Computed example of a mutant assay.
Amino acid sequence: MGNIFDDEKLYPYQGAIKEHFKDHYDAVFIALLPFFQLDREETDKTNLKKSKLLSHEEALKKIDFLKNLPEANRDIYSYDNERYPADEEIFRGAKAIPWKNIVNGSTLTCYAELNTALRTSIGALNRNFTRPELMEQLNNYTDSESIYHPTEGSFGMLSKITIHKAFKLMGKNQIMITDEFYENTTTVDLDQLTEYEFCDEIGGKDYYLYSADKEALFTIEWDSFFFLIATDQNKIDQLIASNLFEGFLCNDDTDHYWEYTT
C-alpha cells in the first residue's frame, strides 16, 4: 500500500472509504455541505443556486463553439450567477440550514434522496439515475423558504468556518492547503490569521486541507455536496460531540456513492 499523500490519492473515488484511508486514519466522517438563508430580499428564485441549467438559446449566446456543433440533447450549466451571495456576505450573515431540516420540510425521506436531488439538479448523474421528481420536491421547498443551495465541489464559506473551528478544537494550527491537481500547496498558520482570512485562503479548487502533521484531513471532489473528514477515532468523537458538522460516520462498506447503499 502506498502513501496517499505521496501518491496524490487524497480522495477515495472508488471502493470502500475506510479501506482507502486505513494506513493513515481509522475513522472517516461524511460531512454534508449546509444549505443557508440570508436576511435578504430575494425575488428571483434562480438566485438560490450557483448553477443554472441553460436553454439552448442561452447556451449559444454564452458558448461560441456550440454554434459549430450539431444540435443535440445535452444539458449545459452556467456558474456565473452574479446574484448568488458572495463569500463575504455569507460569512457576515448566513444562517446554516441543515440537511435534516430540508428533508423534513421537503417531504424527501432521507439524506440519500436529498443528495440524489442535488446531484440531479447539476446534471451530475447519468440519465438512468436522475430523479427529477426528487429535484422538484427539493426546489419547491427551498424556493418557498428562500433557502440557498450549497455549491458542489468546493468547501463553501460555512464549511470553511466550521473547518477552522475544528482545526482549533484539535489544536492544529499549521494547515496545508492543496489544490485539486496537487500543483500548489500552501501552508498557513491559524495563529496569524483571522477566521475570515483563513476562509479566504481556501480557493474554490482547493480540495485538500490537512494539518501539517497529517493527523487530520478534509477532502472533497468536484461534483459532491459533501466532504470527508479523516482522522483518528478520538478526534472524530471530539468533532461529533462539538456538533460542528452534520453527517454520519463511514462504516466498513461506505463508498463515495453512499446514497445508493445507505
Score class of each variant (00 low, 15 high):
214 K>L: 00
199 C>A: 14
210 Y>P: 00
200 D>R: 06
196 Y>Q: 06
219 T>Y: 03
219 T>L: 08
198 F>G: 03
203 G>M: 13
192 Q>R: 13
206 D>G: 03
224 S>D: 07
222 W>K: 12
220 I>F: 10
220 I>P: 09
224 S>Y: 13
208 Y>G: 02
207 Y>R: 02
211 S>K: 09
189 D>C: 03
205 K>H: 13
203 G>P: 09
204 G>I: 08
213 D>T: 13
221 E>V: 10
210 Y>S: 10
203 G>T: 04
223 D>V: 13
196 Y>G: 00
209 L>V: 11
217 L>G: 12
203 G>C: 00
221 E>L: 09
211 S>V: 05
211 S>I: 08
201 E>T: 09
201 E>D: 03
188 V>Y: 01
223 D>S: 14
213 D>I: 06
189 D>G: 04
195 E>Q: 10
201 E>S: 14
214 K>T: 15
211 S>H: 14
188 V>L: 03
188 V>T: 09
223 D>P: 10
218 F>H: 01
223 D>T: 08
203 G>N: 05
216 A>S: 11
212 A>G: 04
194 T>L: 03
217 L>S: 07
197 E>T: 04
212 A>S: 15
216 A>P: 08
215 E>W: 02
196 Y>F: 12
191 D>N: 15
211 S>F: 10
197 E>W: 00
192 Q>M: 13
200 D>I: 00
222 W>E: 13
216 A>M: 13
222 W>Y: 15
212 A>Q: 15
201 E>G: 05
209 L>D: 10
210 Y>V: 09
222 W>I: 12
223 D>F: 12
222 W>R: 09
206 D>E: 15
190 L>K: 01
211 S>M: 05
208 Y>D: 09
209 L>W: 10
190 L>N: 02
207 Y>C: 07
207 Y>I: 12
218 F>N: 09
204 G>F: 04
210 Y>I: 05
212 A>L: 10
221 E>R: 11
206 D>W: 05
210 Y>C: 08
205 K>R: 07
189 D>K: 06
189 D>A: 07
192 Q>V: 00
211 S>Q: 14
193 L>Q: 00
197 E>F: 02
218 F>W: 03
202 I>H: 01
191 D>H: 13
214 K>E: 15
218 F>Y: 09
201 E>I: 04
221 E>A: 06
222 W>G: 12
197 E>C: 04
203 G>E: 10
215 E>S: 15
224 S>L: 14
200 D>S: 02
196 Y>P: 00
205 K>S: 13
